[in-house]
Design a protein around this nucleic acid. Structure first.
Lengths: 102, 102
DNA sequence: ATAATATATCAAGATATATTGATATATTAT
DNA sequence: ATAATATATCAATATATCTTGATATATTAT
């Protein structure tokens, strides 16, 4: 039950829905991409990514200075169905070049 | 997005998970069944049922003095997958006779 | 009509969660 | 080693949610 509530709690937030959907659409993004895409301060982005990771949706891979976040694979069918549902919500997916130097 | 968050928010609570699973297993229960099964005061039960109903999981049918709650049918695949996931959590499902007079 | 039972809603306080700015750590380039 | 960049964590405040007791409404039995 605790794991279930952690999973559900991680997506019970508008900001995290946008971030999760962004990563799901883009494939792989670093924290600074999200910072500039959504114009959020770093500590806020970092905090939400941590919660989504603990919710079982994300994996992180560090390369050089950057931490690249992407959808965890393999993903169980329950979380997959959640991602699909989120993908249908019509959330904004910022595009274009971002400001970070990678 | 608002509907999605309402759905998610409705199951982001331990008490509601237990109640929802109870209804899912029992088929149809009245408010007083839940009161006695979980030893909760009526206002608390009523409030949680309202939230679960607004989350799209429940329907209610009034017959005489009682309001009978059951899983909404037909239920979309997303909410179905959530119910299945909850059913696998091993939550307590109180059994036996309850105190109300129906 | 009155009493008893079932359910819903409101308001207040308690608890949990989100946001922010400041600070800490870690890696890379020079 | 130093500077620059990326990320994580902490503490304080703001905001949202849960619980409870009191009250309101609705139905049934007498």
């Amino acid at each position: 039950m605790d794991i279930f509530l952690k999973t559900i709690g991680s997506i019970n937030d508008e900001t995290r829905l946008k971030i999760l959907n962004f990563i799901n659409q883009k494939g792989e993004v670093c924290v600074c991409d999200i910072e500039s895409a959504f114009k959020m301060i770093q500590s806020r982005v970092s905090r939400h990514l941590k919660i989504l990771k603990e919710g079982g949706f994300l994996k992180v891979e560090r390369r050089g200075r950057w931490a690249f976040y992407s959808i965890r694979t393999p993903l169980d069918t329950f979380r997959q169905s959640i991602l699909e549902e989120i993908a249908c919500l019509g959330l904004e997916v910022p595009t274009g070049e971002f400001e970070c130097k990678k």
